[in-house]
Write a protein that binds this DNA or RNA. Structure first.
Lengths: 140, 140
DNA sequence: GTGATTGCAAATCTTTTGCACTAAA
DNA sequence: TTTAGTGCAAAAGATTTGCAATCAC
């Protein structure tokens, strides 16, 4: 059993090294939670809770700092879905989201769901960084 | 000069009454700033500053509460552009936004700029409340 | 007069930061 | 050993809330 785990850990460590960060116990622990397995959407709070449960020794401040660093180096994408809190997506490819308003939960749009035509020109002096689409959902 | 002002005030008061709110001095003052003239995007802070400058006697807490109430009754729309603060749009019709990341400023997309095809079906049990598109801009 | 609204200050919530301590290289 | 990273507690910023005072009707 331990074998796969060890290999995955090694990959996570390499991933962190690859972006120029020091692979500390905390970063490795958080990265394991984030990057081993399917793509996911987390808040700082959720990740902190998960880390605590699974025995990763980390403080909430470090969770925040680590998430920010991972975004900065392109390992995570920050998704703006509501004004209350930030969501982080382990899938950094260009895609869009459902946001379940009643549950404060993000979900990927099925790929190819939305195609945007007639993208406007950026106003003078600006360039388009990114286009975010959020489909807000409520209970039926 | 005073005449137009008085009429506009009257309309603002009627607007507030129409949604079932009591037209207090504060609500009328804020509504005048918001709804007389062109459509605009404001933050609570900006509106509070404006109110203070133009002699509308109102506290920051009341600005927040009033904005929230105006959103609830459909007089304003809250726009999600970043996690730091909320923006309020006096244009409640369906339209999308540029967000100037470096300036924290919203701007309407030229009408008809974006057309979304292939809108996905909502997941089971949910219905689509709204689709938000934010085109994030940085300095060129 | 009476119930809704306001102002203020305090509380809340998310996120960031300063600084002494710890750990990775 | 040396520098980067961490934890804690405090700070910061946006927003909400409790409650006594005030206002609209």
């Amino acid at each position: 059993m331990g074998n796969k785990m060890v290999i995955a850990d090694k990959n996570v460590e390499l991933k962190i090294r690859a972006v120029g960060l020091k692979p500390t116990r905390q970063r490795i622990g958080l990265a394991r939670l984030l990057f081993i397995g399917c793509a996911r959407h987390v808040t700082a709070d959720e990740l902190f809770a998960e880390a605590s449960e699974s025995g990763v020794p980390v403080s909430l401040a470090t969770v925040y700092n680590t998430l920010r660093q991972f975004v900065d180096v392109g390992l995570l994408r920050e998704v703006l879905a509501g004004p209350e809190r930030s969501y982080f997506d382990t899938d950094v490819s260009h895609h869009h989201h459902f946001f379940h308003v009643d549950e404060n939960r993000l979900e990927d749009l099925p790929p190819g769901s939305i195609s945007i035509d007639d993208l406007p020109n950026a106003p003078a002096g600006s360039k388009i960084e990114r286009v975010d689409v959020v489909v807000r959902l409520t209970r039926k």
